[in-house]
């Protein structure tokens, strides 16, 4: 199976979690996954933002974080774990970084490389593209 190329453009916690869940299980099932974090989707991986749990969220996100009976792994941890289990690659959008004048070291240490649009399209050429 050629796999999935996921464009993660949203910084909303529910969407981040959903993408990480799907990508993680796909990769753990040996389905190739490429995740391109761009715009607000990349900003969600900012180290300070993760430390402060500063995410846009709706009622489901709030419920997941506040429920003491639910031990929810954060999207960034799911993706890091998935990298150990299967064929998943994460890329940070160069444009988004340039716009904020940030370096990759300011984001969680889960990215394999920095890509522009052309680079992403090359990686996505044989895959089903999912835009979130």
């Amino acid at each position: 199976m050629p796999g999935y190329a996921i464009v993660l453009a949203s910084g909303q916690l529910e969407r981040l979690q959903a993408v990480s869940n799907i990508a993680s299980i796909a990769a753990a099932s040996d389905i190739p996954v490429e995740v391109f974090a761009t715009m607000d989707g990349l900003e969600a991986f900012d180290k300070d933002r993760i430390a402060a749990m500063d995410f846009e969220m709706g009622p489901v996100g709030e419920a997941m974080l506040s429920n003491e009976d639910m031990d929810m792994a954060l999207f960034v941890d799911n993706l890091a774990r998935a990298s150990e289990l299967g064929p998943i690659s994460l890329y940070a959008c160069e444009l988004s970084m340039d716009a904020l004048q940030k370096g990759l070291d300011e984001y969680a240490d889960v990215f394999d490389d920095v890509l522009g649009v052309s680079g992403f399209l090359t990686h996505a050429a044989d895959k089903q593209v999912i835009f979130v």
């Binding site: 869940n21 993680s24 753990a28 099932s29 009976d69 792994a73 289990l85």
Partner: peptide, 16 residues
Amino acid sequence: GATCPGPLMDLIGHVR
């Protein structure tokens, strides 16, 4: 205590 997809990922890690 773990939520989806934690239990499945735990299992996959061991099964492998």
